[in-house]
C-alpha cells in the first residue's frame, strides 16, 4: 500500500530529517513509529499525504508517486491527524469542522449529517457540536482532529501522537477503533511515545533515530529486547521490566496482561514456598 524508496528529506533550514528511508507497509497493517524527539516521525507521516515531498527518492501510496499526485487525490486516500490538532481547525463550530471535508468530497447532506453525528458521538464530543473548536480542552481538540479523519475513513490513516491529552478510557476506545479499522482493511500508521499504549496494541513497530530506521519488528521483539528501547530514548513497558526482574522465579519476560502476570507470579511463589 505504501512504499518509501531511499527517501531523504531536508527542511529549508538545512536540517536533514529523513535519511535514506526505505520501507514497505502492506494494506491492513498497523504500524507504530517510535523514537526520540526530533527523530523524524512527523516528517515521515507528512510524506504520506504529500504535505512534504521527498528531497530525494520517492514515496508511493497505492502505486501513486506523491510527487505527481494532486493534493485532492491524496487527501481522498490518506487522512493525517496532526500532532498539533489545532493547526487543522478553521471552522467556527465543531460540527462544521467535521462536516467540511465530507462536503468537499461530495457526499450528500444526509450522509454528511449521519457521519458527523457518528464521529462526534464516538469521540464524546456531541455536547460541543456548536462550540468553537479553538475553545476545547487539549484532549478534546485531539479527539476532534481524530473525528474529522474517522468521519471520512480514508484507506490510509496516519495518527501523529493520537493519545496525547487522552485519559485511559479514551485510550481504550481509541484502541478498539484502531482494531475495528484494521478489520475494514484500513492501513494505519501511528507515531507515538506512549509505550504502554503501544505495548497493549502490539502493532509492527518501527524505531527511528536521527532520520533513520534502526529497527523494525513485532512489539515483543522490540520491547523485550534489553538494549533497543533505551538506545532510542524509550523506556520499556513496566510489564516487560517487571517480568524480567522476576525471572529469578522462573517468569519469562513478556507483555502479558497484569492479571496474567499476577497469576503466574502466585503460581511460581506457591511452588517455591511449598518446597521449603
Amino acid at each position: 500500500m505504501i512504499s518509501f524508496e531511499e527517501v531523504e528529506y531536508v527542511y529549508p533550514n538545512g536540517v536533514k530529517a529523513l535519511d535514506n528511508i526505505s520501507l514497505r507497509i502492506g494494506r491492513g497493517e498497523i504500524v507504530a513509529l517510535m523514537g526520540e524527539n526530533g527523530s523524524g516521525k512527523t516528517t515521515l507521516l507528512k510524506h504520506l499525504n504529500g504535505l512534504l515531498k521527498p528531497t530525494r527518492g520517492r514515496v508511493l501510496v497505492d502505486g501513486v508517486d506523491t510527487r505527481s499526485a494532486t493534493v485532492a487525490e491524496l487527501a481522498r486516500k490518506v487522512g493525517l491527524v496532526f500532532q498539533n490538532a489545532e493547526s487543522m481547525f478553521f471552522s467556527s463550530t465543531v460540527w462544521e469542522e467535521v462536516a467540511f471535508a465530507l462536503r468537499n468530497f461530495g457526499y450528500e447532506e444526509s450522509v454528511v449529517r449521519r457521519r458527523v453525528e457518528w464521529a462526534l458521538n464516538f469521540m464524546e464530543l456531541m455536547d460541543y457540536a456548536e462550540s468553537s473548536p479553538f475553545l476545547l480542552s487539549g484532549g478534546e481538540k485531539k479527539r476532534l482532529a481524530l473525528a474529522i479523519v474517522l468521519a471520512w475513513s480514508p484507506e490510509v490513516i496516519a495518527l501523529d501522537e493520537p493519545t496525547t491529552g487522552q485519559d485511559q478510557l479514551q485510550k481504550e476506545k481509541l484502541m478498539q477503533m484502531i482494531k475495528l479499522l484494521r478489520e475494514q482493511d484500513r492501513t494505519i500508521i501511528i507515531s507515538s511515545h506512549d509505550v504502554e499504549f503501544i505495548a497493549q496494541l502490539k502493532p509492527r513497530i518501527i524505531l527511528m533515530k536521527r532520520g533513520r530506521i534502526v529497527a523494525d519488528g513485532s512489539a515483543d521483539e522490540i520491547f523485550l529486547n534489553e538494549d533497543l528501547p533505551l538506545s532510542c530514548n524509550l523506556l520499556p513497558p513496566q510489564i516487560a521490566s517487571l517480568t524480567r526482574e522476576l525471572s529469578f522465579l522462573g517468569l519469562k519476560p513478556s507483555l502479558k496482561h497484569p492479571q496474567e502476570v499476577a497469576e503466574e507470579l502466585l503460581d511460581a511463589l506457591s511452588k517455591i514456598l511449598h518446597k521449603s
Binding site: 485519559d167 513496566q238 506457591s270
Partner: peptide, 22 residues
C-alpha cells in the same frame, strides 16, 4: 475517572484480589 495506575500497581492489586501467599 480515566486514571490508569502504573502497571505494577495493577499487578499488585490482582495479586491482592487472589488472597494467595503474597
Amino acid at each position: 475517572y480515566g486514571v490508569a495506575p502504573p502497571k505494577v500497581s495493577e499487578v499488585a492489586r490482582y495479586v491482592n484480589a487472589h488472597q494467595g501467599c503474597l
